[in-house]
Each structure stands twice: as C-alpha cells, then as structure tokens.
Design a protein around this nucleic acid. Structure first.
Lengths: 245, 245
DNA sequence: TCCGCCTCATTGATAACACTATTGTTCCGC
DNA sequence: GCGGAACAATAGTGTTATCAATGAGGCGGA
C-alpha cells in the first residue's frame, strides 16, 4: 500500500519488529516491558527504545508509566485505523480476520462515497473515471489479472477521493489492501466476472451522469457480492466463482 | 471523548501545542522546522522535541529527514483517523468542516453496524440495549438534555460495539465527538423530537428482534435526518427543529 | 551543460547523569 | 489487627554532551 514504513532509522526497525509482535498478540494485554529490556533485547540505546515506545503509545498499543514500565493495552483500546497497525495485522496471523472487518467497513463506506462522488465531482473528473473504467474493463476481459487489480484499485481509490470527504478518501489505502489481499488469497476468479464489470460500468456512468442513488445502488451491489464471497469462504476455502470488486 | 492526551509529560505538552497548530494549517505544507528551533521555541531539550516529532511523523503530519529538517506534509497525506488528530482539528478553525466529514462517515457506518448488531449480539446484550433505549427516551421526554446526550452517546457506542466489527467499534469515539459537538453548536432542539426517539426505539427493538434490515433502515433514517440538518445549517446558522441522533 | 566530488548543516544515535512520579513496604498509633 | 503516614526502591522522564551518518547544494572540472 502507501510507502512502507521507513526502515532506514533504527527506531523504525525496532518498531517494525515490536509493533507486529504486539499486534499479533505475542504479548497479551497487561504484559510489561521495561525500556531496559527493550534496549537490551533489540540491542539499541534507551533513547531509541523510548522513541519506538512513544509511537506505540500514540497508537494506544501500550501505556508507559513511571515505576510500572510499558504495559500492553487490551486490543479494544488500540487505534485500529492507524495504517501502520492495519499493515501489521494484515501481515500477522490475524490477517483473515482483519480482512473481514476491513471488507465490512469497505462495504459500508463505498456506496455512500460513490453517491457523494456523483454529487460533487467535476465534469473532467467524471469523464476521467469513465475512461479509467473502460481501460479496466478491457484489461479484465483480456485476463491480465495483475494489471486489472492495479486498475481496479485505482478505480475505487479515485471514487473515494472524488467523494470530497477526506475521511472516505483516507480509506483508499485500506481498500487497496483489501483488494490486493483478496487476490493473494485466491478469492478472485482468474477472469473478472462480466456481471462485476457491468456493475463497475454502472457506477462510473451513474457518477458521470450525476445520479447519486444509482451510483450508490450499483456500488452496493458490488460490495454485497464481495462480502458474501468472503463470508462464504472459510479461512482458506476454495473459491467458487466470486465477484470482482 | 476518550481520556484526553496525558499532559503530565513534557513531550505531550509540546505535542499538544505543536500538533493543533499544524492541524490548523498554521504551518502550510512544505514548512520546515528544525529540531533546534523546536527545542528553542518550546524551551525543551532536543530529545523531547524529537519524541514529539516521532509522534507527528507516525501520524504522517511531518516528514523528518537528515540535513533537511522536519517538513510539514500536505493535509491529504495525514492519518485522518488518528483520534488525536481528529481532536486537534475539532478544537481548531476547521471544526465545522471536520464535523461535516465525520457526520458523513457516521451516516455511512452506523446503519450497517446496526444491521450487524442485529445479527450478532447476544440475547443479554440485545435486552440491555432496549433497556438503555427506554431510559434514554424517558430522559429525553423529561428534557434533561445533558444526561440525554450522555445516554444517546452510550446508545450509539454500544451498537457500534455490538456490531462485532472492531473497525466499527473504533469509531465510537468519533460518534461521541460528533454528538457532543452538535449539541455544543446548538444544532439540537432543547427537547429531542418524538420522531427521533421513535426511530431509536425501532433500532433497539429491531436489534433485539434480530431484524438486520429493519435495524439498518431505522438507523439510516436517523442519520439521514442528521446529515440533512447539518447540510441545512450554515457555519453557525440558527437551528430549526432538528433531529436527535 | 552536465557530472561528480566536497562540504557542512541537520538529523540519528549513544552515554551518563539528575529528577520525578508511583508504588510496595514498613512502621506507628489506634 | 488494621488504617494510614513515612519511606525507599524502581521505573520512566528530561538534560546535556558528543560523535556518526546523511544528503542537499555548491563548486569545479571535463
């Protein structure tokens, strides 16, 4: 997704190891670190350990208190929208669960976002979206799955941005992650289903035509299929013919 | 909302001053700080300044690079879901704009969350929600606005939690902020509208009865009213009779 | 004009220290 | 025995000093 965390600095490397471990539940809520132990275990200075802890603290993963140490907080208190945390969880054992919650979130947000785009986008933006859709459809029909995925991500990302709501736009990384993750998990057919392509076309033309309700309904159809596909598939169950979304 | 940022520590106090300033746009994208200047301006050591910068960096508000300094990033790249950043923006001049985007987000998420709650909540949880709704309605009818606000927040928070989706649950702070903010801005009638109370009752009983579609539709009615009320009201325009939500 | 090297401002990292908050313990008085 | 006050141990918090690494911008040569 977005430029991965910069591993040039030492505290980021500590973070890249400690963060995923906590996110994965290796250290349960209530587990206590000390700066001393972190510095020792990671072979870094206290200062570097402190900077890493600051970041974890701002994500509400841990609580740092004098005399007590650095305590892991219960997962319910974490800042679950933090892009870093999302990435960590997607990289860990909770990947499938996280993919589910993110897909449900996507299903909630994208239809209203499409409606908003139909209301607010400029003519040029509408046209560009339709053109993008056509390239995407053509690529899908050709069966170039990698390139199709990239275009699909771009399509959804652009709608979120055209919604004119930065909170919606802020989820574009999440959507990219979900779409890419779904492909990795073979939850996608080799060739996108014609019905799905058709629905995408409806979304694009409804946005171009300034029809919020139509855009919202079409997008709702897309995400409904996606949610059902994910619900149907067990943890790694074989896909039937699923959506393209 | 959630326990306010801890102002006991020095770096948090720096953050509490610097963060809102950047969030408010006092320093435009591209503006460059140096650790030296921050340390001097805030009268703290370089170490403390660095810890504050680390946090700002993890929120993607700034980029810290050797030889260049600390650069403010364009707002489009910020982690707009970070609770701290949301609080800062709600405290600043962009308050009304932020309240709008958050309300739209709420409108997108709460109906599906209500549907999910109707599918997944336990019998005890369903009953408790209905009881909460009754207390809330009674308080509303009595006209005890402060207490009603608290109960209303609790009602919506609980639905988000019962949805069983931590991403939905993670927005409960946002919803609380929106509801409280709306009251502060006098966008609420002194006494909640009976129709709004009725809709809340429908949500509660649909969840209790395990009727996802009904719960979703009722919640959609609630948030539609809220969005329209906010759209209608200019920046600080006087309220008509508005929703309660 | 363009390429490559050099310079140096600025962050990155370490270490050693004093300060402070929190908490577990002890001890006193009731 | 029990409650509370005083104390001490143990972290994190904050400061300072010092050096290493980096990379943007300038300088000079081909």
């Amino acid at each position: 997704m977005t430029a991965d965390a910069d591993h040039r600095t030492l505290h980021n490397r500590v973070l890249a190891e400690l963060g995923p471990a906590i996110a994965a539940g290796d250290y349960g809520p209530g587990h206590v670190f000390t700066l001393e132990s972190l510095a020792r275990d990671f072979g870094v200075s206290r200062t570097v350990a402190r900077e890493a802890v600051r970041v974890l603290e701002s994500m509400r993963l841990v609580l740092s208190r004098p005399r007590t140490g650095i305590t892991v907080r219960p997962a319910a208190e974490w800042s679950v929208y933090d892009p870093q945390l999302i990435r960590w969880r997607l990289a860990g054992p909770g990947r499938m669960a996280q993919l589910r919650t993110l897909t449900e979130l996507r299903a909630a947000v994208e239809p209203p976002a499409a409606a908003a785009a139909a209301r607010r986008a400029t003519p040029a933006q509408r046209r560009a979206l339709s053109e993008l859709n056509e390239v995407m459809a053509e690529t899908g029909r050709r069966g170039d799955l990698d390139r199709f995925l990239a275009l699909d991500i771009e399509f959804h990302r652009r709608i979120l941005e055209l919604s004119g709501n930065e909170m919606f736009a802020g989820l574009s990384g999440v959507v990219a992650e979900v779409l890419a993750g779904r492909t990795q998990h073979r939850l996608m057919p080799v060739r996108p289903r014609p019905e799905a392509l058709c629905l995408h076309a409806h979304v694009a033309s409804a946005i171009e035509g300034g029809l919020p309700e139509v855009a919202e309904a079409a997008m709702r159809s897309i995400v409904r299929e996606v949610v059902e596909a994910l619900d149907g598939a067990g943890d790694g169950a074989p896909p039937g013919a699923t959506a393209a979304g």
